[in-house]
Amino acid sequence: MKATIRVNGKDEDVPAGGLAALLAAHGVRQTRGCAVAINGAVVPASAWPTQTVAPGDDIEILRIVGGG
């Protein structure tokens, strides 16, 4: 079985370049207005460049949108 990660509820291949590569692939170009959690814990933006991603990780990539 191929090792995958969950990104926003969908299976994806493990990115070679860690979280930074994953975020780039998802079009995240800035830290403000965006946030990331891995396995239920927030990853501060300062740690994005060095954060590794391992098979089985459950990753949420979120951003600020209109809300009431």
Binding site: G27, G33, A35, I61, L62, R63, I64, V65, G66, G67
Partner: peptide
């Protein structure tokens, strides 16, 4: 101004509301 936090979608990632 209230805002929400939602999963990103490639299609919907336009100009940031925050900006």
């Amino acid at each position: 101004v209230t805002v929400a936090v939602r999963r990103i979608s490639l299609a919907g990632y336009a100009e940031s509301l925050v900006d």
